[in-house]
Design a binder for these strands. Structure first.
Lengths: 208, 208, 208, 208
DNA sequence: TATGAATGAGTGTTCATTCAT
DNA sequence: GATGAATGAACACTCATTCAT
């Protein structure tokens, strides 16, 4: 009876291993330049094996997004359960964005990937659906924090959803800017600095 | 006498035609998925002809970036020469960002290109240098507007450069968010709305 | 137990098959005009498969050279181990040159390859080194035969190395001459005749 | 009336210029790697112009052979008209081979080129014919020198034609060997040395 | 299940040749 | 005649995907 369980566990572990390897390789080379062979080598698995778990390279790539969205959901839920004041919670979320990118800089790139035109068309509708659900969930969680802050009179009345859109956009843009600058060899402001200042400024627009 | 002039004109027109075609194709398929043959077909030119004007696919791609940076510089300079109040100028710049993306949605994607890891390494150092110079120029122009607004007491004292970083990041992020949503088939907030609200909010953090 | 062995055997056989095909195609079309697809078709293998065994067209070509140098070394060593009188051995070597060319007319052309300007620069230094070592080895083997003939008083004293240079040059030149004539449609003297007479003449300059 | 002559003169000069340029470029890059553009640039002429004088790249290449064969004929005839003893004349011819290669190392490569299989088929039959006639002429001229030396009792009786074949083969082979060695970075014997020693040895087989 | 050898379509780039001016 | 921009076929090489073992 434990056999089936073990099988499932092993399968999950194997998948996990491939994902970890994929994240590393995609991060280093980007989607196009990364090869399935690279990933297989990194995961110490044969190429064929990857195809036992993922339908295609794209599928593998997008699956990384699921994973990171999941991680983010969990992190936000943990923050929400902390009992902190809502504005402090938002601050935590914002900081989490940074930590998240610092720890998994690759994951950010998966997001950028989704913005690539023509690519989505190659994804299974089910995958697309899945992404939407998870993204909506994350947005919704943060919205609740903002709503709570407004309720408690900590923030001026705003459409919480819009605030979250701005919050997330700002973060995405900051990462993009700092990554581009790093790539170009320019070192005028680190993401850390930008990130901190951005929030201070952001709050000026929120607080009563 | 007119012959040489005509030659130059024709050459420019041909280059222009290739660029226009390239923008369209890159926009539709992204850098990796776009083929030189796609571009040639779109430009109604043979593949070889493209190589008469550009050294490589990358070179062609980057030239589009130059072009758009140039356009942006000119637009900002025009705004600065308008004699408007600095805060109104900034508003114009912000609106220009939107118009720019509305008119050349493809061009925005060229910017994203620079964030791709590993790709930069394939560019000539001179090209890199050129990009940096042009980007710095644009940032610097907008900084001057912000500085003027602070000088005139319209904005609270801030490091102008930081303000511009936030401004640009926010715009980049908004575009990114709305494009991703469009790709995913989600239609909850248009870029237009996000863009307008973002500025209102942004100014709350700036104004005295 | 046998599986690994079979794998190795199959790999060797596959490589062999590609080499045989390559020799034929290169012989027919020359290096530049031969395409990887030609070779693949001839070997009844896909293009990709060739690249599983050889890094590049050049690499494949040079490997043929190694092969033929190896064959030559072995032939000469066999002759040296025959116990024949040194002058008879030299005769055998000379005859071997002819047989070699008769059996593998293609292989001769690989030697010509090395004389092509600009091409060498594309080879790995290690490969270059390897070629030198193998060529030196062959020259050295024949030199020893000549030295032995001189020692035994069969030949007049000469620098053995120089004798071998002349011997080999003469052979190369004869092949070249006869091939060119064949290509041009001239049939005045066969390589066989030239080859025989050349040795008779050559010996007149060597014998006491 | 002088106009037609001038035209012819100019045409010849133009052809000459292209040939000189071609020799240089082919020498530097080899046939395959040399481009018509390279040659045009070197000749300070447009690509189109080359095609006014030559049907193809191959045609241009082979025309260089005509030129060098012509030069060789003239040189040999001059030697024959010198009134020297026939054996001295042969020595001169042998030396001329060396000088010829030293001055026009490229021309040697054209000869090697003709040995390339499959190429000849792309040449006009007329061109082929022309080459044969000129080659035959050169061989015949040298044969006459050898015949004279035999007649005068300076050389042992040999079939003069065979002697010339050996002579030419030996030279070709020596050039090939030394060029290959140069390419491979080996410097054990210069062509000059090989060339000198070869003749000494060659004469031992000829003299009474 | 896992493997990894084999596949072959796909791509950027080159360059001999042509032809309108 | 002379030009050189335009052409487009050709080619080496890559790599996602498959499938026999």
């Amino acid at each position: 009876m434990g056999t089936a369980h073990r099988k499932v566990r092993e399968r999950r572990a194997r998948k996990q291993g491939i994902q970890v390897a994929a994240v590393r390789v995609f991060a280093e080379k980007g989607f196009s330049r990364a090869t399935m062979e690279d990933i297989a080598r990194q995961a110490e698995v044969s190429v064929g094996t990857i195809y036992l778990y993922y339908r295609s390279k794209e599928d593998l790539y997008v699956s990384l997004l699921f994973e990171s969205m999941q991680r983010m959901s969990e992190a936000i839920e943990k923050i929400m359960a902390s009992g902190l004041r809502p504005d402090r919670q938002l601050r935590r979320v914002w900081d989490y964005f940074y930590d998240y990118h610092a720890r998994y800089p690759q994951s950010y790139r998966v997001l950028v990937f989704l913005q690539q035109p023509g690519l989505i068309s190659g994804l299974a509708p089910k995958t697309l659906q899945e992404i939407n659900v998870r993204a909506a969930r994350n947005f919704s969680l943060v919205s609740r924090i903002v709503a709570a802050a407004i309720d408690k009179g900590l923030y001026r009345p705003h459409e919480p959803r819009e605030v979250v859109d701005l919050l997330w956009s700002l973060f995405l843009g900051l990462v993009h800017l700092s990554e581009t600058r790093k790539n170009l060899g320019v070192t005028i402001a680190t993401l850390k600095d930008l990130h901190r200042k951005a929030f201070a400024w952001l709050e000026e627009g929120l607080r009563v």
